[in-house]
């Protein structure tokens, strides 16, 4: 598997570190339902078989955080962009 870094181009998987699901949005800690919202955020996952939006860190390259869309059935990369600016 290779990931297309917007800065560095197509790079080998071994240069990257995986964080996981990029769709979960950090809840408001002051909201009345904060406890259950944080449980949801920290522990529950959609875990889809198919396209998955996820965070990768280009540790051995430009050290950018990326948002990658990847098919978990085939490992096909659908898109990759810098995560900064659209982190939830």
């Amino acid at each position: 598997m290779r990931l297309p870094c917007p800065f560095c181009g197509s790079r080998d998987l071994s240069e990257f570190t995986y964080l996981g699901d990029a769709t979960a949005a950090r809840p408001d800690p002051d909201a009345p339902d904060a406890a259950s919202a944080f449980f949801d955020y920290a522990y529950l996952r959609d875990n889809p078989a198919g396209p998955h939006r996820e965070y990768w860190y280009h540790a051995q390259g430009c050290r950018s955080w990326l948002t990658v869309e990847r098919n978990t059935r085939t490992h096909e990369i659908l898109s990759a962009s810098l995560a900064s600016g659209n982190v939830q």
Partner: peptide, 16 residues
């Protein structure tokens, strides 16, 4: 391998 996958096959970095 360390990333979500339903592919039942992995990649080379972990083999290495």
């Amino acid at each position: 391998d360390g990333y979500n996958s339903y592919a039942q096959r992995g990649n080379l970095p972990v083999i290495e």
